[in-house]
Design a protein around this nucleic acid. Structure first.
Lengths: 219, 219, 219, 219
DNA sequence: CATGAATGAGCTTTCATTCAT
DNA sequence: CATGAATGAAAGCTCATTCAT
């Protein structure tokens, strides 16, 4: 789900403070509505109500079109998540350490931003261009995820920390596992964040580390 | 994604042959439209066009409401997948064997029914009841998946084949891993079905089997 | 303004009687609204009111889009006018006779269908495709007009009835003169239809006939 | 199309230089947009873009309402045309001479200001007051045209230069003929300006002059 | 002289659905 | 089994305009 959107940045798009505040207010409302009602039902009318503003016109005034609003939602959420993860993984030196830190940081962020996660999800799975193709489709999302995780896995293989495996598939799998943990933390009987972190880091360790078992297994 | 819908069956709802043919034709068209255009854009008009019929009235005639059509689509696809998996895992006796067989069978079915997979996905993630709640939401889906996989995992733990882990989370993770493999098989550079099967069964083995590594790790 | 639309026809687009009646009712209302309020203000809401129907939805049901409605209006009016003119000019043998008959027939039709004339006008001058170009622009309209009148003029030149002149420009001019006569018949102090016919046929005769004056003039 | 608007002038409405420059810039842009996209699509947004200014607010600031902007466009274009014609016809003494000079001058101005012609056209045919009536409708336009041309025609009849005809209809016809020549000069195969002038002055001469043909014709 | 923020009204279009045969 | 006609609701979007500085 991670997108590189909003990552770097040239000149910040000069906007006034008041405008930014309004935009933030609307984005927040949009995220909640997306999480609650899904993409198709995330109408301007509903977002207006949730944001406590008087007219849907205010939304289109600040964002132009619905697509642009959704882009802004996505950029906002993805940027926030990326920042959190980057901050946590910066100090790690080994591939194994970075992998563990990523899993932990991402799980934590997810646990603390369930609505945003759901919203990003809705946008990615539903926003389409005129020609009908997904604007942030599986390919783009897969590439974004792989682009972040796979270099770490490859480095680990090079350094001898990790066994031989398909790095792309492993990246996809680990990302999917983290996402799946959401359900484990939210649907009763719930597992705590800490427990999920321990389970998943253990799983990642077993799946990636070089060891007698793995070696024998893969010949 | 597996749903118990359409699994068992009481008395078959007496329908004529011609009617069944029409229903099948429409369901097939609906699946393709869902896969191509997503839930929100899967309108009666589009399905009509894809099915090559003359009026949307024919759809509502055979299925009543749109929800019922989507239910039928889901039941059809889920039933087909369940049947394929059940047939393959029947002969396995050990938990490890069943797990491997499941992974292989599911990957194979998925690879051969990409549109149906996508369609099920769209329906589950988007179909909502009047009150706005997902009709086949994460909870239901999670339960369905867990309901099939978790007993096997628990049995493996009881029999000593598997190490100690949270069976629910592991079930979710393995299911997610299989789903993630779709991208690996479809987005270039592609991995073959056989390679994916090998990678994932290896991964599952490492993640689940009792071993010196795992033991030390978990105390 | 004459358009070849609706002229000939292959298989008539099979439509029910009730549907045709409704379409006619709506087209009539649309013509009146166009004549009264102009293209931009010819909204579905206004047409609905004029037609005495309950919902704008009925319009889009029968015509699909607004463009298609306007096309239908144009085809209807243009077809009617063409038929009237054709019926009148059929019996004429000489170019001069055909020209006079045309002018008289067109003036008569115009005088009896002022709203339709105005409506055709509005559609031709305002209906645009997505790219912004006029759907029935000056070129198309000019060609349509020229296409009907110019062959007659050329024939008259060949037969020696008419003097030498640019047939295209003459066709445009005569058409424009007829259109301009509308104002003469409707804005006080009004001229009667018969007087207009006499004035214009005289004018056309003077402008086209070979004569000592013209000959000397053009050397 | 000629309008008396902007013709005379009392005290010039004291405006600053900068303001006048801005107004001119906006009027020019509006003319181009009108010519390209038509009245209905001549929105403030489009004019803003064409003028290269930053906000539509600037337009309403300088012109108040859209109607006033359109009035200004019309006055500007019509004034320019009138000036050109007046300057050319001033030296003529006979009715016939004035008529020929008018035709030539108007054709020349038109050929050199196609966008402005189109823009005037759009405004006249589309600008409406609140009650729905055309602000510069056929009546007004007809009167304006007639008001300029008809006195000349009448003078010619009085002086014996011209035959007997309805002066109002003749004025309308000659104006319409000049307008129709636009298409002849712009739509291929094109006629040159000089050729159009010759054709139309010849036509006007034949149509208006007293002569054996005409006399016999009208008894 | 110029700009930013906000707004209400109105538009066409699309949707699933129901009432008739 | 199938079809035609009709419909209410709601959506996103664009428009000119006004209230503030």
């Amino acid at each position: 789900m991670q997108l590189t959107i909003g990552g770097a940045g040239g000149a910040p798009p000069r906007r006034s403070l008041a405008s930014d505040a309004r935009r933030g207010q609307i984005i927040t409302a949009a995220i909640e509505v997306l999480a609650e009602h899904g993409y198709a039902q995330s109408t301007f009318a509903r977002i207006k109500r949730k944001a406590g503003i008087s007219s849907t016109r205010l939304i289109s005034y600040h964002f132009g079109t619905k697509d642009e609003l959704m882009d802004a939602v996505l950029a906002d959420a993805a940027g926030s998540m990326q920042a959190a993860i980057a901050e946590r993984t910066r100090s790690e030196k080994t591939a194994a350490g970075m992998l563990d830190a990523r899993i932990e940081a991402e799980l934590e962020w997810i646990a603390g931003h369930l609505s945003a996660v759901r919203a990003m999800y809705e946008v990615c799975m539903n926003a389409r261009s005129e020609d009908g193709t997904l604007r942030f489709g599986v390919e783009a999302t897969a590439q974004a995820n792989v682009g972040q995780l796979e270099p770490i896995l490859r480095a680990g293989q090079r350094s001898g920390e990790f066994r031989a495996f398909d790095t792309v598939l492993m990246a996809l799998t680990l990302k999917a596992a983290v996402d799946a943990a959401i359900a484990r933390m939210t649907c009763p009987p719930r597992l705590s964040l800490a427990e999920c972190v321990r389970e998943l880091t253990t799983l990642a360790r077993l799946a990636t580390r070089r060891g007698p078992d793995a070696d024998r297994d893969r010949r």
